[in-house]
Nucleic acid binder design. Structure first.
Length: 443
RNA sequence: GGCCCUAUCGUCUAACGGCUAGGACACAUCCCUUUCACGGAUGAAAUCGGGGUUCGAUUCCCCGUAGGGUCACCA
């Protein structure tokens, strides 16, 4: 049930893909609104015809959907020219704006008549902020009656839609006085009292503490999506940048959250004033943690999608076996794309077909025959990692665990690195285990 | 440069005048495992500087300093 006492908006400009900063702004707007059962609007700020592109709009929407952020309403500024024109005429008629023809040879534009006032506003995150607007001059608010510019269109929409809270990046702080000036001028015209509150969130910074941008590498949300990061991890990570669930009396040391949990916990009080540096290691950690929390079916589907076709044609491939090795896969990856890479490097081959063996890697293997005998004595129905380890352990310890276990592991996997031999043996089964050892013995 | 914002471990952050400045990532060591990974334990690591206010400042105020943002007929 929407009470609609809170109305917010996320207003991206479709001049590029959704980037990390935009995604986080959307997230904070979403969390703030959802927490209070408010209403959130997606507004496409496409007043700039030259630079706006439909494909970017689609890309932004698909990024938001991927993150799981939904909106109650969508509007597009390019479809609202009539509304802006109406207000523009009012401002012109009221003398709060004028057509400026003295533009040094350029086309005439519509400028806002700056009353040169001191503007004071309270930012929900930073407290009182003061600007002397006299150094702003008579700024341009539209190219002509049919082509409004950002400040004008934005302010009109915020009023028309009854926006109660504007949550946006810190880089907009210096835009705020202009927008308040326009808001006040509009209020004179139609006598609606402006009551919007501002909350400027800190920027996401590059490691050098400058504003994150293309030159710092991956900034598009899409790039992370393509690398196989989970939306859950991205949400969790973005939330951790500049916001803390630990703040306040009900603080918690919990770090891993679902979107639903974040919605319950979110508060502007937990927002930091200073910029937060983007940290790939931490994102990776969030992703590994979120992978661990994925439902089994989801995990299975995701992993299966990553595996190359040649895996499925192996003699012993089965969904059942794949399910068995899922834990062994997930504890060794950071993003899902790692699976494809590792699979192509042969990392998973031995689970589904006998490995090629190099005698040098096997070593002397003087205990392998005895090892085989011990394994042979284990009941086929009792062939679990625990039992195999149990039966082999004393023998391995007595003769040097490396002497016994290394050749066994290599015989089964053919690799320098792999899970332990007990686990591998249990997965491929007694028959296959003995067969691989026999083969190794012939080398 | 003008205006504005900001300042706790390398990074993300907690402590909203009062425990030995807490947690997480990363890092190091050890344990587990003679492989890899996971896991467990331990450790190193911070209040930018100077003045105030106060019995007491990470916390409040001022001044520096540093960093950032913004100064379009982009948003």
């Amino acid at each position: 049930m929407k009470t609609e006492s809170i109305i917010t908006r996320f207003a991206p400009s479709p001049t590029g893909n959704l980037h990390l900063g935009g995604a986080r702004t959307a997230l904070f707007n979403y969390l703030f609104t959802a927490k209070q059962n408010g209403r959130i609007i997606l507004r496409i700020d496409d007043t700039d015809n030259e630079r706006s592109r439909p494909e970017y709009e689609e890309s932004i929407k698909s990024g938001l959907a991927w993150l799981g952020l939904s909106f109650d309403q969508e509007i597009k500024q390019s479809e609202r020219t009539d509304i802006y024109r109406r207000y523009l005429k009012q401002l012109l008629a009221g003398g709060q704006a004028y057509v400026s023809t003295d533009e040094g040879g350029r086309e005439p534009v519509i400028r806002f008549k700056n009353p040169n006032r001191l503007i004071r506003f309270t930012d929900l995150i930073r407290g009182n902020i003061e600007f002397d607007t006299s150094d702003l001059g008579d700024f341009v608010i539209a190219k002509d009656e049919n082509r409004p510019l950002y400040h004008l269109a934005s302010v009109i929409d915020d009023r028309e839609l009854g926006i109660t809270h504007i949550i946006r990046g810190e880089d907009h702080i210096s835009n705020t006085p202009r927008q308040i000036l326009i808001t006040e001028a509009l209020a004179v015209a139609d006598e609606i009292k402006p009551t919007v509150a501002y909350a400027h969130i800190p920027l996401i910074l590059a490691p050098d503490r400058s504003k994150l941008s293309k030159r710092h590498g991956a900034v598009d949300l899409r790039q992370y999506r393509e690398q196989g990061y989970l939306p859950e991890a991205m949400i969790n990570f973005l939330a951790s940048l500049g916001w803390s669930a630990q703040a306040g009396k009900e603080g918690t040391n919990q770090e891993i959250f679902t979107l639903t949990e974040l919605t319950k916990l979110f508060s502007l009080d937990g927002i930091q004033k200073s910029g937060a540096v983007f940290n790939q290691d931490k994102l990776d950690w969030f992703n590994r943690e979120q992978i661990k929390r994925l439902p089994a079916d989801e995990l299975f589907t995701q992993i299966k999608n990553q595996l190359p076709e040649n895996i499925f044609t192996r003699p012993t491939y089965s969904d059942e076996r794949l399910r068995q090795i899922i834990p062994l896969i997930t504890e060794r990856i950071t993003v899902f794309n790692d699976i494809r890479r590792l699979a192509e490097e042969g990392e998973y081959d031995f689970y589904f077909s006998p490995p090629g063996l190099a005698k040098e890697m096997l070593g002397p293997a003087k205990y392998l025959a005895q090892t085989k005998e011990i394994i042979d004595q284990i009941d086929k129905d009792d062939f679990t990692a625990e039992v195999i380890k149990d039966k082999l352990w004393d023998f391995a310890t007595a003769n040097g665990r490396g002497e016994v276990l290394w050749p066994l592991r290599v015989a089964l996997t053919g690799r320098e690195k792999s899970p332990d031999p007990f686990t591998v043996a249990a997965i491929i089964g007694k028959e296959e285990t003995l067969s691989r050892i026999s083969y190794a013995l012939t080398l």
